[in-house]
């Protein structure tokens, strides 16, 4: 297999359909993978799959956004190669469940914002030291405006977007880069069977968009692209009207 890039990619939340699709595309261009998440058996299957598809190598490490003890062992695996990271973790409990059990707020924020942010704080010096490397943060269109259906998840993602913006500011001056990805409805286990889904995009398409954005050093992308316009409209609705809507 030709090693085109020979860079290392850390995927946080590698059991998600989007991460799996991206891992395969990275594998076919010969990159090295560090797959992290909680379901070790599942990630082992993805790692084997990626190695056969051409990954330079694929390793599996435990990562739990709610357990910072799991963060440093991942950083410790790095060698002198350029390192990139993509964050796919996050959790979206039903808003109704959160409304009846407010303690669910903490876990949602930890999974979708503070856990990955703390990990990226530990990774940032590595990127600065190498003077190169891309961080891809997968946020959500839900972070663009708080709404009835999932405002705690949306708030966590909004926090993550702001964090990524700041991290971009920091890493850019060291030669690194940060891409903020805002997916719309993606055809994954998270959206399967939920009412009201439309224009659902396959995870392979999202993964291809993310890789293109990373290669071209784009700052903020919506995927599929038309969500930029949908969200522009939703953001433009005056709050005094929006507060009465349920979209």
């Amino acid at each position: 297999m030709a090693v085109k890039k020979g860079e290392v990619w850390i995927l946080l939340g590698a059991t998600s359909a989007m991460a799996r699709a991206m891992a395969r595309q990275l594998a076919e261009r010969g990159d090295a993978l560090i797959l992290t998440g909680r379901d070790m058996d599942d990630m082992a299957a993805t790692a084997a799959d990626c190695e056969i598809r051409g990954a330079h190598d694929a390793r599996v490490v435990a990562f739990d956004a709610r357990d910072p003890e799991t963060f440093q062992p991942i950083i410790d695996l790095l060698d002198e190669r350029i390192v990139n990271a993509a964050v796919f973790v996050g959790s979206m409990p039903d808003q109704g469940d959160i409304d009846s059990d407010p303690s669910l707020v903490d876990g949602t924020v930890m999974d979708s914002f503070t856990g990955p942010a703390r990990f990226l704080q530990q990774l940032a010096p590595e990127i600065e030291a190498r003077g190169a490397g891309v961080v891809v943060g997968v946020g959500s269109v839900a972070g663009d405006r708080g709404r009835l259906g999932n405002y705690v998840y949306g708030a966590a993602k909004a926090g993550f977007h702001t964090y990524l913006s700041g991290l971009r500011n920091r890493l850019t001056r060291a030669g690194g880069h940060v891409v903020t990805v805002k997916p719309g409805f993606i055809d994954t286990a998270m959206t399967w069977g939920i009412e009201g889904m439309f224009l659902v995009a396959p995870p392979e398409k999202v993964a291809a968009d993310i890789l293109k954005a990373a290669d071209r050093r784009r700052d903020v992308i919506y995927t599929p692209f038309f969500w930029r316009y949908i969200m522009a409209i939703i953001r433009a609705i005056p709050e005094r009207v929006f507060k009465k809507m349920s979209i």
Partner: peptide, 26 residues
């Protein structure tokens, strides 16, 4: 989660409506 779907065999002469699951992990 199950998703109520209309689906068909490749010939599309026979169709079904039923609940589909699509697991991503074993």
């Amino acid at each position: 989660r199950w998703k109520t779907t209309e689906y068909a065999g490749w010939g599309r002469a026979l169709r079904a409506t039923g609940d589909l699951a699509r697991p991503e992990r074993v």
